[in-house]
């Protein structure tokens, strides 16, 4: 028997209201993402790929349809329930890293753990473990401004995986990086999938990034191609 998909999306629709106008972004999308997948979502601007990613990540609300992630129907959750769900199940990787500038690399990575019941010592162990995965153990007392773009993105990845979520969502993770750093980040994400069994959903414009993914889906005008 095959393993059930980790993400099951059914008839998902979302539209935005701009003044009196209603702009449809996603119209009745249905698809599955298998566990351990490295999926790239591509498409022109305004195709709805970021919206789809936000919906899967539980930071936006769908109009209709359902999103089941690891068996949990997240469209029915309240704000607070969603926040709690995100803390344990989703890791975020952003285009501009979104590290907190006043916190050190260590503290940035530790942030999601503050929402758990781990002790200070356990948190330290977790943070050190993931920083060693991204190869930044020697930089943990540095502030984001003291790190290069590639290093900042690696800290952000460490932060995304520190709670050991099953799904990682990445919005243009290489969009702000030079080629070498982008390569490094993509390899790291690939390792997370192959070595650690994570499911990565990445939105990108960059064909080279898409190449690294195991599966590429195209979105156009709110529909999957």
């Amino acid at each position: 028997m095959t393993e059930p998909p980790i993400v099951e999306i059914r008839n998902l629709s979302k539209s935005y209201r701009r003044g009196s106008q209603i702009i449809p972004v996603l119209s009745g999308i249905s698809f599955d993402i298998a566990r351990g997948e490295f999926l790239a979502l591509m498409g022109p601007s305004g195709s709805g790929k970021s919206t789809l990613l936000n919906l899967i990540a539980g930071i936006d609300f769908a109009d209709t349809g359902s999103i089941q992630i690891a068996g949990v129907e997240i469209t029915g959750l309240s704000e607070t329930e969603l926040a709690h769900w995100r803390a344990g199940n989703v890791g975020f990787i952003f285009q501009f890293y979104n590290l907190i500038p006043v916190l050190t690399a260590f503290e940035n990575v530790e942030l999601p753990l503050l929402l758990t019941h781990l002790t200070r010592k356990e948190r330290r162990e977790h943070v050190e473990a993931v920083l060693s995965v991204v190869g930044l153990t020697d930089r943990m007392d540095h502030y984001p401004a003291q790190l290069s773009g590639g290093q900042q993105q690696r800290v952000a990845i460490a932060r995304a995986i520190v709670t050991d979520p099953e799904i990682l969502v990445a919005d243009e993770p290489t969009g702000d990086l030079d080629r070498a750093s982008a390569e490094e980040i993509l390899s790291l994400m690939d390792r997370l999938v192959t070595e650690f069994g994570k499911t990565v959903i990445m939105v990108t414009h960059d064909p080279r990034a898409a190449e690294k993914a195991h599966l590429v889906r195209h979105l156009e005008k709110g529909e999957l191609q």
Partner: peptide, 14 residues
Amino acid sequence: VTEIGTLRALGFRR
């Protein structure tokens, strides 16, 4: 603003 959005995405509540 972005920082606040990030913290919220990470699971911090209102």
